[in-house]
Nucleic acid binder design. Sequence first.
DNA 1: TTGACTCCCCGTCAAGCCAA
DNA 2: TTGGCTTGACGGGGAGTCAA
Length: 291
Amino acid sequence: MDGMVDENGTVDPLAPSPPPVAISSVGVVTQQQLVASTNIVHLTLPASNNHAQTQVQSVIQPNQQSVIQTAANIQPVLGKGNVILVSKPNSVIQTPQGSLHALQVINVVETTASDDSYSDDESPKKRRDLLTRRPSYRKILNDLGGEPKVEQTSSEADSELSSHSIPYHTVIPAGAIQISSGEGGQSIHTLSMTNSGTAGAAIVQYAQGQEFFVPVMAQSGNITSGGGEDQARKREMRLLKNREAARECRRKKKEYIKCLENRVAVLENQNKALIDELKSLKELYCKQKTE
DNA sequence: TTGACTCCCCGTCAAGCCAA
DNA sequence: TTGGCTTGACGGGGAGTCAA
């Protein structure tokens, strides 16, 4: 993960917690996106004190205390008595300088069944289901809060996909259309539909810098002349949709793997912190014993 | 330069899941 | 029950690397 520091951070969980802070004192750290009911916390620290805007992301365990790791450059921002609010009580923020920042809990929305992928108290039925088939990446990522845009408007999807040069198709009504690509709407293509006289629609598939591909989508019994052609078109449609679905699925899978890797990093640091704590407690105990 | 190897991405198929 | 969606599995192709 960008900006995540794995090894430098140490946590002192025994550090005294500051008294509860009024919510009004939180102004310096802006929560741009804090999904209290999910496991991922996105924070954007505002550009201040000559610091560029900084993003923090952490995976919060559903039923555990959690650790938020930060990059080195946001330590000055975090170190001035600011409070980051998360929905999980008793969590800690881990920074390369080893500072501990107490967290105050606000707006707690308890996780519900959306956490069933990882929660400890799964019903036997759910557990059985998980053994037979994994939940979809879309569901997992929605649960994690990493993919809030389940329903995209077509324009959003257009801009996102075109910006990544992903081949993309869309179903459009019959008639002439204009498609713009690039910022500011330059490079506008006008496309006349070959089936504009029919009631059918067409599928437009395009990618940045590529030619248009405009197959005609057959309305059942409308254009086709025989069952064989109809079946061939149906197959073509199915393949086209599945192609898109596979692409999307792979994207989700990569995102899911990234989330898991983040979680591993967080847990490793948490484990390291707990080991350190145990060590220091042992030392303290031995010291007191000898006195 | 070339062949072997690896990695990544893609398209397709098939099976399971799920909402209507 | 069924049609559409999701995803694991499989194979192919392109790009990069490395030793011969």
